[in-house]
Design a protein around this nucleic acid. Structure first.
Lengths: 156, 156
DNA sequence: AAGCATTAAATCGCGTACGATATAAATATC
DNA sequence: GATATTTATATCGTACGCGATTTAATGCTT
């Protein structure tokens, strides 16, 4: 028998394709590209759209609360929200009791964009080729993976 | 019984947390952050490291071939490779038979970096909290999801 | 061989994404 | 109640990542 290397499930992955980090990384880009043409019509970028989905679910969050949900830093979120404000989709208002906080609320224009989301989601779900049940399970798995990784990365 | 909305597995997800795109998106950032401190010691960024893993597997690829493996455009890859060249980890050489192509080869310094990768991979695998078997299955699932999405996005 | 389309990288402009730092407000400590 | 510490955003510098465009080389057609 030739000296072909046997790769068992117990070996650490070495090639890029076998690394979970790379797979997630490239899958992220794939979704970005899939959303792009649809979001272009709305004049939105992919991260802007994701930020809006959070506000559609719960309006009036502070920048920090949004960052927690989106797992983004204020250095990313502040400029993004300023662009959404310039586009007229959100308003940014300093808190009154605590003037350090900035609260983000949807404008009518921002709320109206929500109407497009079911079509977009449907289109993406279809592109995945997975059924809703399988997607739902995958979301739970990847979310737990992500949260585990975030926990060990925590800056306490 | 109150009019609480029932959500079945057949409903389209609406909240950010339930969208596969967002989950993948945030998981990508989580990995980026987890790798950051280790890669910092090597003077590498996360995308640079991923590009190197491809070259460790197969050296001497063209920019286009690397882009295909990494699912990145030349507009992303060219500047990244120039930085890796400036760091002394790769060399970029125009092809002789076809002068449009640029081939990327590892230098000794670039090859040496590979020695650090098992430790890094081990550390990341541990951070996921998943065993290798589960990770392997997840990689396959996410890769197929990604490829499905890329197929429908293809620019033919 | 000349002209035209195709291809591979590179360049450009814009928008993330981060860590490090700054600013300013709130809170804790003395 | 003045000072120190912490906290919430914002700013800055660097590096992606993409689509659109450019440049230069190759291939195709006649």
């Amino acid at each position: 028998m030739p000296a072909k290397k046997k790769v068992s499930k117990n070996d650490l992955p070495t090639s890029a394709g076998d690394l979970i980090c790379f797979t997630i990384y490239s899958a992220g880009h794939a979704f970005n590209r899939a959303y792009h043409p649809m979001l272009k019509e709305l004049g939105l970028t992919y991260p802007q759209y994701i930020a809006l989905t959070v506000l559609w679910e719960q309006d009036g969050l502070s920048v920090g609360e949004m960052g927690e949900k989106l797992k983004l830093e204020s250095s990313t979120l502040t400029p993004l929200l300023k662009r959404l404000e310039k586009l007229g989709h959100v308003a940014r208002k300093r808190g009154t009791t605590d003037e350090r906080q900035v609260f983000v609320t949807l404008t009518k224009s921002g709320r109206d964009l929500k109407k497009s989301s079911p079509d977009i989601t449907r289109c993406i779900v279809e592109a995945t080729g997975f059924d809703l049940k399988k997607l739902d399970a995958l979301v739970k798995t990847v979310a737990s993976l992500r949260d585990n990784v975030l926990d060990t990365t925590e800056k306490t």
